[in-house]
């Protein structure tokens, strides 16, 4: 019933105890580990052998220090061409060499189109409006990315889809988003809130929230950067 090996108290490498006394046990094989041989991955203890390979993009939100983004080579990129290709779902991202993002774009496109076409009740109008907005977003996004590539800025697979990690490491964006979406959908489902009544306010509210978040991210980024430089010194 319980195949999971429970996690022993997490190792504290600075802790007391002799060199050979095990301070932790591997999650996979249960081998005792002293403070030299302890390896951790996402706050779970492993031995050298069972330490999982670093996952790059999937752990955006939990990994405290994401792997440095591999920069995508840029030569002869045309932002205008990227814009045109960006109107075709996923193609703009592929043009920019971001296959992960292309997949995400395709998925979101499918989702948006199906929502707009399906019987989604009061939400239908919102989704119908969302379709052109989304297509233009993809085009503009491809254009911006192409420009960044021309400028030689480093970009990872998922640039601008998950803006939170680099910008605001401390802000619980995902949880807040989940809760907000959950509350909105729940209220709509229960008929307590008509989303189509909110449409007139949706634009401004979205802008305010986005602005607030960006402001927060900027400020946070500054202080984080200064902290890092302090620590380095």
């Amino acid at each position: 019933m319980d195949p999971e090996n429970p996690l022993p108290p997490a190792a504290n490498p600075e802790g007391e105890g002799s060199e050979n006394k095990p301070v932790a046990f591997c999650r996979s094989c249960g081998k005792g580990l002293n403070k030299e041989s302890v390896r951790t991955h996402r706050e779970v203890v492993y031995c050298e052998e069972h330490l999982p390979k670093q996952e790059e993009a999937s752990s955006q939100w939990s990994a405290p220090n994401p792997a440095p983004a591999p920069s995508i080579p840029s030569s002869g990129v045309s932002p205008g061409f990227a814009f045109v290709l960006g109107l075709i779902p996923g193609v703009g991202a592929i043009y920019n060499g971001q296959f992960g993002k292309a997949v995400v774009h395709l998925l979101i496109t499918a989702l948006v189109c199906s929502m707009a076409g399906g019987h989604s009740g009061s939400l239908e109008t919102v989704f119908e409006m969302l379709v052109p907005v989304w297509f233009f977003y993809m085009a503009i996004e491809a254009y911006q990315t192409a420009k960044k590539r021309l400028a030689g800025e480093p970009l990872d697979e998922f640039s601008s889809i998950f803006p939170g990690q680099a910008a605001a490491p401390g802000f619980p964006l995902l949880p807040v988003l989940l809760i907000a979406l959950g509350v909105i959908f729940l209220l709509d489902n229960l008929g307590l809130l008509r989303i189509n009544q909110l449409i007139p306010y949706a634009g401004p509210i979205f802008l305010i929230v986005l602005g607030a978040y960006m402001l927060y991210a900027r400020l946070r980024n500054h202080s984080a950067a200064s902290e890092v430089s302090h620590e380095r010194n």
């Binding site: 807040v176 907000a180 979406l181 959950g182 509350v183 729940l186 489902n189």
Partner: peptide, 9 residues
């Protein structure tokens, strides 16, 4: 179902 989202959040 949105309750699940809220709980996860």
């Amino acid at each position: 179902w949105p309750v699940i989202l809220i709980v996860i959040g």
